[in-house]
Design a protein around this nucleic acid. Structure first.
Lengths: 220, 220
DNA sequence: TGTACATCAGTGAACGCGCGTTCACTGATGTAC
DNA sequence: TGTACATCAGTGAACGCGCGTTCACTGATGTAC
C-alpha cells in the first residue's frame, strides 16, 4: 500500500524493501519478543549484509518506532473499517479480539508492558484518540437515551464531567463515556490475560470469558 | 528472611549475597526492563567481578526464574496477609493496586507481556492457584446467598460449571466463581493500562477508574 | 538513440561494546584433630 | 589452644558471540543532453 504511492521505480523499490524488512521484524518479534529485535539479523534473513539496512532505517530505534506506529494505525484502521459496516458495539467487540489474536505481539506492542525509558512517538497518542473516537461513536449509538432515568450519577460521572478532554468535541453523554472506558479496560483485561496464556493453565475457555465481559457492557 | 533460615555463617552469607544481587536485579529491571537484565552488570554494581556471581546463580535464566517466582510469591503472601485481617473483598481490591504500584515491573513480570519461548517455572501455576484461592474465599463471603434468586444462569455459568478445576475443591457457588474472575480480569484491565501510562495522556485519574471497576464488582 | 554523468543500493572491513560463561588460580574462612 | 587440611568466595584472563553503527568503495540504475 505504501509502495503503490511511490512515483519513481526507485521509490517504489525502497518502499518494497522497507515493507519486507518490517515483515521480517514482525516474525522476529513473534519468535523472541520485541526486545530481541536486531537490524543485523533482519538483514541476514533478507539475504543482505548488515549495514545495507541502514539505507532504509536510520537506526534500530527508528524501526521500532515505525512498528509501534504501524500497530496503532492498524488497529485504528481495522476499527474504522468495521464501524463503516455498522455502528453496533458488538461488532467492535469481535473486531478487537480478532485483531488481537491475529498477531498477539502486535497487540502487546500497543497495550503491553512498556519498556522503561522508551517513549512512544507522539503520533500514537493521536491515533489512540482516533481509536477512542470510534468506540465512543458506537457507545453513543448504544445509549440513545443519554442517561438511564432512574440511575443516580456515579462518582465516576463526576470525574468524567471534569475530564472529558480525551473524548474531544464528541457530544457523547456521560453514560457513553463510562461505557467506552469499560469497553476498553474490561476487554483489555480478559484479552491480555488470554494472550499471556493465563487461562490455559486453568482450563478456562477465553472466548467464554470474553463474551461474558462483552455482555457485562450492555447488560444484555 | 531467607537469610535467617541459614545454619552456618557461610550459608547465611550466601543467602545475603543472593538477596543483595536480587535487589540490584530489580533496580535494573525498573531502569531498563527485564530483558536488559545482565549478571555482569549486577556484579559490577555490587563491586564484584563478573564471574563471581556464578557462585550464586547457575545462569542468567536461573536468576530470572527466581525473580519471577519471588514476584508471584510476594503477591500471594501480600494477599494472604490482608485476608488474615478480614475477608472483605474491598480489602483485596486495595491490596492489589497497592502491590502493583509498589513495583510496577514486578507486576508486569507476573501479568505483563510474555517473552515468546520463555516458560515460567511450574511453581508459578501453583502460586497462581493460591492467589485465586484467597480471592475466591473473599468472593464467597461476599455472596453468602449463593445465587441471587431471580437471576437466570448466564452462559458463563454453564461453562464454569464444567470447568471449575482451577477453583480446586473450593465450595464456592457459581456466583462467587464469576465474581472472582471479574475481580481478576477487570482490575487487571484498569491496572495494567494505568501502569503502562495509557491514562495519563487522557488526563484521567486512574484511581477513579479503578474504584469504579471495583464498584462494578459488587454492584455497590 | 547513444553517450556522460549523477544517484544510490549494497559490500566488506572495521570499531568498540557488553554479554554469558568457563577455567585455573589465590587467598581467606571454617573444620578436625 | 594450635596446627593441618578442606572448603569455598572471588579474581583475571580468555573464548566466542552478536550487536549497532561508520566508512570507503564498487557496481548497477536512472537522468540529461
Amino acid at each position: 500500500m505504501a509502495a503503490s504511492n511511490a512515483r519513481t521505480p526507485r521509490e517504489r523499490y525502497r518502499a518494497q524493501v522497507r515493507e519486507e524488512a518490517k515483515e521480517h521484524a514482525w516474525e522476529q518479534i513473534a519468535t523472541a519478543g520485541a526486545s530481541a529485535l536486531s537490524l543485523n539479523a533482519i538483514a541476514k534473513r533478507m539475504g543482505l549484509s548488515g549495514p545495507a539496512l541502514y539505507r532504509y532505517f536510520a537506526s534500530r530505534d527508528e524501526l521500532i518506532t515505525e512498528l509501534v506506529t504501524d500497530a496503532y494505525r492498524s488497529l485504528a484502521d481495522t476499527f474504522r473499517a468495521r464501524a463503516a459496516a455498522g455502528t453496533d458495539l458488538a461488532g467492535l467487540v469481535d473486531t478487537l479480539r480478532q485483531w488481537a489474536l491475529d498477531d498477539p505481539q502486535r497487540y502487546f506492542l500497543v497495550y503491553g508492558t512498556p519498556v522503561p525509558g522508551y517513549h512512544a512517538p507522539e503520533e500514537t497518542t493521536r491515533i489512540s484518540g482516533e481509536i477512542m473516537a470510534v468506540i465512543l461513536d458506537a457507545c453513543t449509538a448504544e445509549e440513545p437515551a443519554g442517561e438511564s432515568p432512574g440511575a443516580p450519577p456515579s462518582p465516576l460521572d463526576a470525574h468524567l464531567a471534569e475530564h472529558r478532554a480525551w473524548a474531544g468535541p464528541h457530544p457523547a453523554p456521560p453514560s457513553a463515556l463510562r461505557l467506552a472506558l469499560a469497553f476498553w479496560t474490561r476487554l483489555h483485561g480478559v484479552l491480555s490475560l488470554e494472550l499471556a496464556g493465563h487461562f490455559t493453565g486453568m482450563g478456562l475457555d477465553p472466548a467464554e470469558l470474553y463474551a461474558a465481559e462483552a455482555r457485562s457492557l450492555t447488560g444484555r
